[in-house]
Design a protein around this nucleic acid. Structure first.
Lengths: 198, 198
DNA sequence: CAAGAAACATACAGTCTGTACGCAGAAACT
DNA sequence: AGTTTCTGCGTACAGACTGTATGTTTCTTG
């Protein structure tokens, strides 16, 4: 009892924080935010509610941390798949493809696209998204517009509208829809924004 | 106590049901679904919790009824503004305009676009939407495609993706964004789907 | 008008959230 | 090393909420 248990405070904190985040991610994805109680959550993490409320202000703060981490993961997966040296329009399609692949991880759509806006509010979710997932799309659009591959349009609005379309596609695909049809329409939307030859 | 209170059962039911629905709509819009407790709700409706659970299976069922009613109202406002005799593309833009106007009613975006998917699930919300709001867009797209004003694309996916874009636009506008920029991009998206002259 | 049903009202049990307080181990200080 | 302070965490508690069960009143029906 006194050998393997000699840990520094930082170690203790990081261990329980990680356990909480992992359990929270699993349960929020499995049963949704509202459907997961803190007693069940801390049991899964093998800590107590005291530890939870020591590390996070409330249940919502824990959820926010989970969403931020998941959002960052998605952004990383997209950037890892981004080839950089493609024509701008193809790069957008590729990035979109990577997004859909990343969102195919079970439960991610509900966590990031359904629960997160309701729990955190769209305002705060936009702030998170601006740092991670949405940023990649925005950068891609900006590059495409600068290279005159896309019509000049308000960047923010365009990024958000295209992002919303991709979000819905991810939801539909997770819901069992035929991915091919959705890809076709997404490509048509992007092609439609291409610079007019006139 | 026995004069003005002689009412048939149907009258009683309809009165309290209406009171519940109206109070629920107000409070769900003001404080969100999770932020509105049934005690507060029934107090606002001037009935008791017993009446609530007599008319609705649970809080979620009441919420569903509110969402259905609000969704129907939005659809009606859109159809009232639909001029029928416009060129298909203009009709789409007009319908979209009517949608944005309808969604400008304070709180509607959170009720229908944020809370509803989280509380009812996207599956069930799609079913409601197919009867009301989403149906109008789908019909408009179908007409436009039949008249060769739009490229032939999978109808369901196209309707959902455009719908998602309009939803996001409504959210952004309620959030204080400049409506003009968003209208420009929405129009660009639709124009981009127009039948290629080739 | 009596009997049954419908529309409520009230009381209760279970669960959840956030907070207050207490304790043990680590860190800081001398 | 010893003492003090602080951090991390466990436990107990108060308040609120949801859904149910049961009682009461008002209508309906034969």
């Amino acid at each position: 009892m006194q050998d393997g248990k000699r840990r520094t405070n930082k170690e203790r904190s990081e261990t329980t924080r990680a356990a909480l985040l992992e359990a929270a991610r699993r349960l929020f994805i499995e049963h949704s935010y509202a459907g997961t109680g803190t007693p069940e959550l801390v049991a899964a993490a093998e800590v107590t509610r005291g530890a939870l409320y020591h590390h996070f202000a409330d249940k919502q703060a824990l959820f926010r941390a989970v969403v931020e981490a998941e959002s960052r993961t998605v952004a990383e997966e997209i950037e890892r798949a981004a080839p950089e040296d493609l024509p701008p329009l193809d790069a957008l399609i590729q990035g979109g493809e990577a997004f859909l692949a990343a969102m195919a991880v079970p439960g991610r759509t509900r966590l990031l696209l359904i629960d997160a806006p309701a729990v955190l509010g769209r305002r705060e979710l936009d702030a998170i998204d601006a740092l991670h997932g949405g940023r990649t799309l925005r950068e891609g659009l900006d590059a495409a517009m600068r290279m005159n591959a896309l019509r000049a349009l308000p960047l923010d609005a365009t990024a958000q509208l295209l992002g919303a379309a991709y979000d819905r596609a991810a939801l539909a695909i997770e819901g069992g829809a035929d991915p091919a049809a959705w890809r076709v329409v997404l490509k048509a939307l992007i092609d439609g924004l291409a610079a007019a030859p006139a």
